[in-house]
Amino acid sequence: MSKRTPKIGPAVQKERKRKGLTLEQLALRSGVSKSMLSQIERGEANPTFAVVWSLTQALEIDVAELIGGTSSQRQTVQIEITTGTLTPRIQSADGLCQLKILGPPRLAGQTEWYEVEIQPGGRLESDPHTLGTFEHFTSLDGEFQVQSGAVSVVLKEGETAHYPADVAHAIANAGTETVRGLLVVLYK
């Protein structure tokens, strides 16, 4: 059973038009270039979470509205449930790495957590985050190579690595099986 990535482009275009905005106006509001917006709306670009977040803020909507539907069903006043099909995903350009965004959008840029899945040979590389940012990565199954700056370690199943993320850093699968982990990013 394959899972499909939500069609964000048509939803952006529909919401933009519903609000009576031109591509240029949405670009100014969101900080996303007009050409990138056009590519997203045509389904030619897969936006990063940061771009999706900027668009939802500019359109004054929730991420769940953008990806098609209600993000949660209220069970009680204090518990919200996001279904698996509505959980946003980010995929690397080569298709070998996938991040499932588990944290709520309102905490983006403060505390973020992801389920990470990396296929054999996949490498999730990140530029430095803001000064003082730390990542905490737990191997749920398999072995990973975790690199922060010039330091690199092998992380075995069940182990957690804590490392600075305000330098270039990476998480890689050097094995022959697809592996999963849990990533928590704490911004200072």
Score class of each variant (00 low, 15 high):
1 M>K: 12
125 E>Q: 10
153 V>H: 03
178 T>F: 06
160 T>K: 09
110 Q>D: 07
3 K>R: 11
175 G>H: 02
111 T>W: 11
18 R>T: 13
73 Q>P: 00
115 E>W: 10
61 I>Q: 07
113 W>V: 00
22 T>M: 09
11 A>S: 15
187 Y>Q: 02
60 E>Y: 06
155 L>W: 00
102 L>Y: 08
171 I>C: 07
117 E>M: 14
2 S>W: 14
157 E>P: 01
86 L>T: 09
137 F>M: 05
169 H>V: 01
184 V>N: 01
186 L>Y: 14
142 G>I: 12
46 N>V: 11
139 S>M: 02
9 G>E: 04
77 V>E: 14
187 Y>D: 04
41 E>Y: 09
153 V>F: 02
152 S>L: 09
40 I>N: 01
167 V>L: 06
88 P>A: 10
11 A>G: 09
125 E>H: 09
27 A>Y: 08
122 G>T: 01
86 L>N: 14
142 G>N: 04
120 P>F: 00
24 E>G: 05
15 E>H: 11
35 S>Y: 00
165 A>K: 04
160 T>V: 11
186 L>M: 14
109 G>M: 04
179 V>C: 13
34 K>Y: 11
187 Y>A: 07
186 L>V: 15
61 I>G: 10
92 S>H: 06
72 S>N: 08
111 T>L: 15
28 L>W: 08
84 G>A: 13
186 L>S: 14
186 L>Q: 15
92 S>G: 04
132 G>S: 03
59 L>W: 05
169 H>M: 01
173 N>R: 07
87 T>V: 14
90 I>S: 05
113 W>N: 09
74 R>C: 05
145 Q>A: 10
2 S>D: 14
77 V>D: 15
105 P>T: 04
122 G>Q: 05
171 I>K: 05
86 L>A: 13
183 L>C: 02
156 K>H: 15
42 R>W: 01
3 K>Q: 12
36 M>C: 06
114 Y>N: 02
147 Q>H: 04
84 G>D: 03
90 I>H: 08
61 I>F: 10
23 L>W: 07
101 I>V: 15
37 L>D: 07
158 G>E: 05
31 G>R: 07
12 V>Y: 08
148 S>L: 06
154 V>S: 08
77 V>H: 14
88 P>C: 06
188 K>G: 10
15 E>P: 09
136 H>D: 05
128 P>V: 09
89 R>M: 07
9 G>L: 02
36 M>N: 10
132 G>F: 06
100 K>E: 11
113 W>P: 00
11 A>D: 10
165 A>G: 11
103 G>P: 01
64 A>L: 08
20 G>K: 01
66 L>C: 05
14 K>R: 13
88 P>K: 07
151 V>P: 00
175 G>M: 03
23 L>I: 12
93 A>Q: 12
23 L>K: 10
120 P>R: 00
150 A>F: 03
53 W>S: 15
49 F>I: 15
